[in-house]
Write a protein that binds this DNA or RNA. Structure first.
Length: 656
DNA sequence: AGAAGATAGCTTTTT
DNA sequence: GCTATCTTCT
C-alpha cells in the first residue's frame, strides 16, 4: 500500500472503508444524513484510480453541477502531488451532461444534426404553444408542457402509455416541432440517449468498451429514464456503485423515485449493501429528534443513525401568536448566537415555501444583517442574457424556432406579431413571405443573421458576442443611461467573460459553449466565505450543514403543505422534507410556528404541524401558546397529552 | 410598441 | 396580498 492508499483509508470508518474497497460488482451505499457520503464516494473514485482503473473508464454522475464541482475538487484534493500531474480526473458531471455527450456523438443516428439546440423550459413552452396553434387548440401551453414533461420523467413516453387522445396528438406534434427545429428539450436529452442505446446495440457495445465503472450520487433522486440509462450502460460490467438515502428523497414531485433505490438489490442480485449510520454532523438530541420524525414513515429502509458527538442542547419548538413575533424571536436568537461566537455563515433560516422568505428579508434589511437568499435571482434567466444567448443559438442552429421568435423583433425592427405568426407557420422560411408588409425588414434580418453566421467561423465565442451586440446595437437598446440599463449591460459583459474563460479551459466552439450554458441554469452559488446569513427553502438545504438552524412555519397547511394533506405518499415526502431540514443542524435546532399567519393576503389560524408530535419530548423543549392542544406520539404510536410542567407557557416573554 | 389596467392563481426545482 | 401574464389602450 503506497502513501496515497494509506491516505485514502486512514480517514474512513470501517463501513466506509468496506464500501470503498468493494471495487467489483454492484454496490449500494445507504448513507444517512451527515454520514460522510460524499467522502466515501470521492475516496472510492481515488481508490479505483489507484487500483489501475483508467480515469477514462470511470463515470461519476450527480444531479446538479454544484455537486459535480464539489466532488471534482475533493477528488483532486485526495490525489498526491505526483498523481495530480499524472492521473486524469474521470468524468464527473450531471446525468444530462453525460447523456448529452452521447447525443453529440450520435445526433445524426437519431435524425438530428450536429448543431442541435437545447430547449429550456421557456423554449419548450414556445414549442408547445406552436403545436397548439397548428392543431388549433386553445389549451394553456405551459400547463400542457408541464404535463408532457411530467409524463416523460415518469417514463410514459409516446407509444408507451395510453394517453388521452388529445394530449397524445399535442405530444406528437410537439415532438415533431422539436425535430424540425433540431432541438432537444431537457427531458429528451435523457430519453433520446436511452432510445439510441436501445435501438443500436453496436453503439451500446462501443460504450461497454469505453466505460467500465459507474458511480451515482443521490441515487434516491433518480427517475425512471435515468435509471434505464444506467441499466443499459452498466449492464455489461455491473460495476455500479450507487449512494443515496431514501429518507432524504424530496423530489418526488419531479418524478424522482426512491423505490429505485429500494429495488437496487433486486435489480442487481449480486449487490453488496453497506449502511453508513455513524453521523458526524449533529448532536445526539438533534439526531434523536429527527429520528423520531422520520421513523413514522412506512416506506423506507431500516437504519438507526448514531453519533459520538455530545448530546447538546434540547431542540426548541416554539409557538408564537403571529409571524411578527416569530421573526422577532429568531432575530434575538441570531444575535445571541453571534455573541457566542457563531458567525452568520454558520446560521440558516429554512422554510417550506418561497413566500415565507419575505418577512426574514425585511428583518435582515431592518437589522442590517447581511443575508443571501438562495434560489432567488438567476443569471441565465435574465432577459438580456437570454436575448444574446438566443442570437448565438439562432446563429449556430438556424432552425432554432424558439430563439428566432425571441430575437426577430428584439431590438424592435418593426416586425409585427402577424408576420411572426406567419413565419412560424412557414417554419421560418422567409422566402414564402413576400406579400407581407414587413417582408423587407424580415429579409434584412435574415440577411444580417447569415452574415453574422459567416463571420462566426473566424471568431472566438467572446468575439462573436461582441460582434452580435455591436451589429444589433444592443447597448443602445438597453439604454446605459438608466441604472437598469447599466446593470444589464454589465451582465452582458459578464457573459463575455464567461465565454472567454470557457474557451480557454475547454477546447471548444460555439456549440459546446451553448450546450454547457443551457445545462448551467443557476449561477447563484452558496457562498459561505462571505459574512452572510442564509435564507432558503428546505429543498435548497439538502446536502448542506449549519451550526444553527431555524425552521419556520411548522404548521398544518404549511409543513405538511396543504396540497399534500390528502395524498399519503406526498405526506411522507413532507415528513422527509422536515427530516432533511432538521438534520442540517450541527449544534442548535430551533423549530418555530405561529397561531396566525397571513397567507395569500388573508389571516389564517394554524394548528401545530402533526410532525411535531413525533419529536420525543425527551430531546426537545416545547413552548406553546395558551389553548394549543399539546400531544405527542408515544413509542406505541398512540397520542399522549404533553406532560412537561411549565407554568409560564401562557406568557411567552418576547425580547425586544 | 410600450404602458397602464385586468385577472388569475398561488409548493417544492434541476437539467 | 403579491406578482406574473394577458389585454387593452394610447
Amino acid at each position: 500500500m503506497n502513501s496515497g492508499e494509506e491516505k485514502i483509508f486512514s480517514e474512513l470508518n470501517e463501513r466506509q472503508r468496506q464500501a470503498v474497497q468493494t471495487v467489483a460488482g454492484p454496490v449500494l451505499i445507504v448513507a444517512g444524513a451527515g454520514s460522510g457520503k460524499t467522502k466515501t464516494l470521492t475516496h472510492r473514485v481515488a481508490h479505483l484510480l489507484s487500483q489501475g482503473v483508467p480515469a477514462s473508464a470511470i463515470v461519476t454522475l450527480t444531479f446538479t453541477n454544484k455537486a459535480a464541482d464539489e466532488m471534482k475538487q475533493r477528488i483532486t484534493a485526495l490525489l498526491s502531488e505526483k498523481e495530480k500531474l499524472t492521473v486524469k480526473i474521470p468524468f464527473i458531471g450531471t446525468f444530462h451532461k453525460f447523456a448529452l455527450s452521447i447525443l453529440r456523438s450520435h445526433a445524426r443516428t437519431i435524425g438530428h444534426e450536429q448543431n442541435f439546440s437545447i430547449y429550456d423550459e421557456l423554449d419548450s413552452c414556445a414549442a408547445t404553444k406552436q403545436a397548439l396553434e397548428r392543431l388549433d387548440y386553445q389549451e394553456n401551453a405551459r400547463a400542457i408542457y408541464k404535463k408532457i414533461s411530467f409524463l416523460k420523467n415518469r417514463g410514459d413516453t409516446l407509444g408507451n402509455g395510453r394517453l388521452p387522445k388529445k394530449l397524445q396528438t399535442i405530444y406528437e406534434e410537439y415532438e415533431k416541432i422539436l425535430l424540425e427545429q433540431n432541438a432537444f428539450d431537457f427531458d429528451n436529452i435523457i430519453l433520446k440517449a436511452v432510445e439510441l442505446l436501445e435501438k443500436h446495440p453496436e453503439i451500446l457495445n462501443m460504450y461497454y468498451g469505453r466505460y467500465t465503472h459507474f458511480l451515482i450520487d443521490e441515487y434516491q433522486d433518480t427517475n425512471k429514464p435515468q435509471y434505464e440509462l444506467l441499466r443499459l450502460l452498466a449492464g455489461k460490467h455491473n460495476n455500479i456503485c450507487v449512494v443515496g438515502d431514501d429518507w432524504q428523497s424530496i423530489y418526488g414531485f419531479r418524478s424522482a423515485d426512491y423505490r429505485i433505490l429500494l429495488n437496487f438489490e433486486h435489480d442487481w442480485p449480486e449487490a453488496r449493501t453497506f449502511y453508513l449510520e455513524q453521523n458526524y454532523r449533529s448532536t445526539q438530541n438533534i439526531l434523536n429528534a429527527s429520528h423520531g420524525v422520520i421513523s413514522k414513515n412506512v416506506a423506507r429502509t431500516e437504519k438507526k443513525l448514531f453519533t459520538e458527538n455530545p448530546s447538546g442542547s434540547l431542540v426548541s419548538v416554539t409557538q408564537f401568536v403571529d409571524e411578527q413575533h416569530e421573526t422577532l424571536w429568531i432575530k434575538e436568537k441570531i444575535f445571541s448566537r453571534l455573541g457566542e461566537g457563531i458567525n452568520l455563515p454558520r446560521i440558516a433560516i429554512l422554510f417550506r415555501t418561497n413566500v415565507q422568505s419575505r418577512i426574514f428579508e425585511d428583518m435582515c434589511i431592518q437589522e442590517r444583517i447581511p443575508y443571501q437568499l438562495i434560489g432567488a435571482f438567476k443569471f441565465y434567466k435574465r432577459k438580456e442574457i437570454v436575448d444574446i444567448v438566443a442570437y448565438l443559438r439562432a446563429i449556430h442552429n438556424p432552425k432554432d424556432g424558439a430563439a428566432l421568435e425571441r430575437i426577430i423583433n428584439v431590438p424592435p425592427r418593426g416586425i409585427g406579431a402577424a408576420s411572426i405568426a406567419r413565419l412560424k407557420k412557414e417554419q421560418w422560411n422567409s422566402e414564402k413571405l413576400t406579400p407581407s408588409p414587413s417582408a423587407n425588414r424580415i429579409q434584412t434580418f435574415f440577411t444580417m443573421m447569415a452574415q453574422i453566421r459567416d463571420k462566426a467561423q473566424k471568431l472566438t465565442t467572446k468575439g462573436l458576442i461582441e460582434h452580435v451586440v455591436h451589429t444589433i446595437e444592443y447597448k443602445q437598446y438597453l439604454d446605459p443611461n438608466t441604472d437598469e440599463g447599466q446593470e444589464r449591460w454589465e451582465n452582458i459583459q459578464e457573459l463575455m467573460r464567461i465565454a472567454e474563460t470557457f474557451s480557454s479551459t475547454e477546447t471548444s466552439g460555439l456549440g459546446e459553449f451553448l450546450h454547457a450554458l443551457q445545462l448551467l441554469q443557476d449561477a447563484d452559488e452558496l457562498d459561505s466565505s462571505k459574512e452572510k446569513l442564509t435564507l432558503m427553502t428546505l429543498h435548497g438545504a439538502k446536502g448542506l450543514e449549519f451550526d444553527t438552524v431555524f425552521i419556520s412555519g411548522l404548521e398544518e397547511g404549511l409543513l405538511p403543505h396543504n396540497r399534500s394533506l390528502s395524498i399519503p405518499d406526498q405526506l411522507e415526502e413532507e415528513r422527509r422534507l422536515l427530516y432533511v431540514g432538521m438534520t442540517r443542524a450541527q449544534t442548535q435546532l430551533h423549530l418555530t410556528l405561529c397561531q396566525t399567519r397571513y397567507i395569500h393576503g388573508s389571516l389564517q389560524y394554524n394548528i401545530p404541524s402533526r410532525f411535531l408530535q413525533d419529536i420525543p419530548p425527551l430531546y426537545a423543549e416545547f413552548v406553546y401558546q395558551t389553548g394549543t392542544p399539546r400531544t405527542y406520539a408515544g413509542e406505541d404510536g398512540l397520542l399522549y397529552e404533553y406532560q412537561r410542567d411549565r407554568e409560564d407557557d401562557e406568557d411567552i416573554v418576547l425580547l425586544g
